[in-house]
Nucleic acid binder design. Structure first.
Lengths: 355, 355
DNA sequence: CTGAAAGCGCTTACAG
DNA sequence: CTGAAAGCGCTTACAG
């Protein structure tokens, strides 16, 4: 069952090829300074033996430390969403730091493009072997991705994707599908007679195409199930309560038969607050993300469903993808869509309890 | 930022304590043969330095191979549920086999208690450092757990728990809560006028107390929300289609106002098949587990919701718990309840897509 | 283009 | 009770 240690490893390869282990090492790592003939001979033996390098020994002997740069939004009062990915990243860090991985964090402000660019510039000055980023600002992220590519630094996208950017991989939600699911929940939770309101709340509705992709998915469901005319749309470009409240009041006055509201992002708690204050709690409310505020309204019943996409796992798996690629040389899946979780009053306690 | 390598590690401890590294090693691993005085001195220095052993070096130098025994049901035609935990176990195995972990699988037949006992006996004859098991047969599992305890072999439960058995940990569903959630979904998906049918389908209803715990949760929801009298209960002790069909026919004839059926385990597809053939597809059907057959009916709309508990993660995390405990010496959480996922037609594609 | 030797930070016999 | 030395399977200068 178990091979004798003498019959595997670089030593054995060297013995069979009649060279030194240093030369074997050069071939294994595709380094220069080996004659074609020798290289071929060694390659052949490696294949024959189905040689698997011992990562323990490799990492121990190598003085090399890998530097990962994490570029994500700062956790703020306004949104504690990013706490979860950060936790996942820290969990991954704990698992791999033993193996000579250094993880540096660069936080930017979601309300300030400049801060994103500033952080990318710092990263590019640093010695960096891999990048994990949430590409919140498309243009800026594309530019940064180009710089990484030039330097041969692999980068992973989490939370939202920018396709065609040759990233190592994308780990995050399938936005269209999550909107589609949202519509399904509306359909389940209301009689089919009322109208449905879709609400985008964001200072950057036009830059944040991911909101629109969710809305598309939402509408598609109704198209597929035959009542697209019942959807009212409301864009709110100021995120504070007053603005949201004013806009909602008006819309609900104009359309008194609205029975469900779908908020395309985590700002659903603002809407919940409005409904509560207005005594409109029989309107079905659905939104995104496992934020403390949102969960509070879920508990109360003001919010019926939160759609979540395992942000903690996104951070964990994104970091591990860099590790697997850079350290273990594993092949990485280009796209990994997260499960679309439905959180309710009854199951929220068991969401994100992972250590 | 980075400490010079000379100022950390056993060598440095040895230097400071004025002893050899062999003695330091003895203290680190709590081995005998060190004077109290020396031990105390070294312990102090270790604490002062906040010394963290280098696992890479430790695993490399140590000739020790850890043997994990995995005791779970064989994947059968009847239920492919156990494919998922097995995948998780294999993913964990791939991640840790580099570090001298040997993982052996022992499969038993869910319809055959004896096969469980037989496998436990084989395991006990083997050199085993840790056990991961699904304790499907309580009595037999308790007995095996005792034997492990005698031998100082830690064991992890997945999928269902046996409390008070001093396991290293339990990783799996909170059964009561998942039943509670099932009732919530019934409530959402039906008008409150109809009756609800709870169906237990198992040859071993009385041994499999976990079915009953789900039923309890289910009933509690209605109690908390005020209509317990509307629940009809049906136990079916033969699992083949004919038996299920016969029983269901009769019950639905007796209670024509049943509008929802809650099946307490993965055999919900049998009920779905019956409803389909009987043209009763407007009855809301809810059950458990992401099996191919179940998903087929989810797609068709015959089943509205499947409740799932990340079986793949149970396998992965269970295996890693053994690793963390035995190899890294990490403190392990006693109980880790899995998230309770709700799977629908719209989100099933994104469930269990993890590699 | 190639090899001998030292070393990564531990563990393991073995000798005293 | 303690220590010197070899070795785990690699990588890394360095010398030729």
């Amino acid at each position: 069952m178990k091979q004798k240690s003498t019959s595997s490893g670089v030593k054995e390869i060297a013995r069979r090829a009649n060279v030194s282990i240093a030369t074997v090492d050069r071939v294994i790592h595709n380094r220069t300074g080996v004659s074609e003939k020798t290289r071929r001979k060694i390659d052949l033996i490696i294949r024959e033996m189905n040689y698997q390098p011992n990562i323990l020994a490799s990492r121990l002997a190598s003085r090399k430390v890998f530097h990962f740069a994490i570029l994500i939004p700062r956790v703020s009062e306004e949104t504690d969403y990013w706490e979860a990915p950060l936790n996942g990243i820290q969990r991954a860090t704990a698992a791999i730091k033993q193996y000579g991985i250094n993880v540096d964090h660069y936080f930017y402000d979601l309300n300030d493009k400049k801060s994103f660019t500033r952080q990318t510039q710092i990263i590019l000055k640093q010695k960096t072997d891999g990048v994990l980023m949430a590409p919140s600002f498309i243009e800026e992220a594309v530019h940064f991705a180009e710089e990484c590519r030039k330097r041969n630094i692999p980068y992973v996208f989490i939370n939202s994707d920018i396709p065609q950017q040759d990233s190592l991989c994308y780990i995050g939600p399938h936005l269209f599908q999550s909107g589609y699911l949202g519509a399904h929940l509306v359909n389940l939770g209301t009689s089919r007679k009322g109208k449905t309101l879709v609400v985008n709340i964001s200072r950057e509705i036009d830059n944040h195409h991911h909101l629109l992709r969710k809305e598309d998915g939402f509408r598609s469901y109704f198209k597929d199930h035959g009542s697209p005319q019942e959807i009212i749309k409301l864009d709110i470009r100021q995120t504070h309560y007053q603005a949201v409240s004013r806009k909602l009041s008006k819309t609900l006055r104009d359309f008194p038969d609205i029975t469900a509201i779908f908020v395309t992002n985590s700002r659903v708690s603002t809407v919940a607050s409005f409904l509560e204050k207005s005594g409109l709690e029989n309107i079905l409310l659905i939104g995104y993300d496992f934020l403390r505020e949102n969960v509070r309204y879920l508990e109360k019943g003001t919010i019926s469903f939160l759609i979540c996409q395992q942000p903690e796992e996104q951070g964990y798996q994104g970091t591990m993808a860099l590790y697997d690629h850079l350290v273990l040389g594993t092949q990485i899946e280009k796209v990994h869509f997260m499960p679309i979780d439905i959180i309710t009053k009854e199951n929220y306690e068991f969401y994100q309890t992972a250590k």
